[in-house]
């Protein structure tokens, strides 16, 4: 099977600081694939480079077989590539509903948008209750739901998720990850999941990449990663 998203020897950084070195990774249609790594390993940079918010200095970024390096990132959601960035970045002074509507900004099919809005509200019922509240007044967990809901409003083919567990209580982390699995199963959405919380990430994924100081040091099926003593020691707290 052809990967829907592929990075080939991508290097990138900020100004003269190089962060990513020779990253190669693949995401196949319909799978959940994760990238784990410590603070500052370059996980967020990887996602931002895929979207060309950070420019790739070298290498190719392929989406559905086409090279997308250098494309304006506002062009990506209409192509089905969507990111939920680190820290959620919901629009704090827009209402929950407005935030969700913006997820469908580029879409013209208003009746389908309404259906999708109802779908997201059914998926995260708390958002329906909070529909007219300002995004900035939501709790951390609710904001994460809103950020994911907003991404769903674009009907993504590939969803890049940056640390959805960040700052959430364990119970809520479980709930969010159940939802992520559900999205993947129901909609067939390919998910590239970036996490520091390797425990949960490896549990829901099919394959995983391990990132250390900007390089991929390991890639494998999660069952092998889970058994790997180095991984267990470094990332699973044993």
């Amino acid at each position: 099977m052809e990967p829907v998203l592929e990075l080939k020897n991508v290097s990138a950084g900020y100004g003269r600081i190089q962060v990513l070195r020779d990253i190669s990774l693949k995401a196949f249609p319909g799978e959940i694939v994760c990238m784990i790594g410590a603070n500052g390993a370059g996980k967020s940079t990887t996602l931002m480079t895929i979207c060309n918010v950070v420019t790739a200095a070298r290498g190719d970024i392929l989406y559905r077989g086409n090279r997308i390096n250098g494309i304006k990132f506002s062009k990506l959601p209409p192509m089905g590539l969507c990111q939920v960035p680190e820290g959620r970045r919901i629009f704090p002074r827009l209402t929950v509903q407005e935030n969700l509507e913006l997820g469908a900004f580029f879409r013209k099919d208003s009746t389908r948008i309404q259906e999708d809005l109802d779908m997201v509200f059914d998926f995260f019922p708390i958002l329906r209750e909070r529909a007219n509240q300002k995004g900035g007044t939501l709790s951390g967990g609710e904001q994460q739901m809103l950020a994911i809901g907003r991404a769903l409003m674009s009907r993504p083919r590939v969803l890049l998720l940056d640390e959805p567990s960040l700052g959430l209580a364990p119970l809520l982390v479980g709930q969010i990850f159940n939802k992520i699995t559900e999205i993947n199963r129901q909609e067939g959405t390919t998910i590239l999941l970036v996490e520091q919380n390797a425990n949960v990430a490896l549990k829901v994924s099919r394959r995983g990449y391990v990132l250390e100081t900007g390089t991929v040091v390991m890639e494998d099926d999660v069952k092998n990663l889970l058994q790997n003593p180095d991984i267990r020691k470094a990332y699973l707290g044993e």
């Binding site: 979207c51 918010v53 304006k72 990132f73 506002s74 062009k75 990506l76 959601p77 209409p78 969507c82 990111q83 960035p85 970045r89 629009f91 704090p92 002074r93 827009l94 407005e98 509507e101 913006l102 997820g103 900004f105 580029f106 907003r150 674009s154």
Partner: peptide
């Protein structure tokens, strides 16, 4: 309006508004 919403979103977070497809 829709365009007003996009303007307010861009004012609040230009990168994020780009990531939802708004050309800032």
């Amino acid at each position: 309006t829709r365009i007003g919403k996009a303007m307010r979103a861009s004012a609040q977070d230009k990168i994020m508004s780009g990531l939802v497809g708004i050309d800032s």
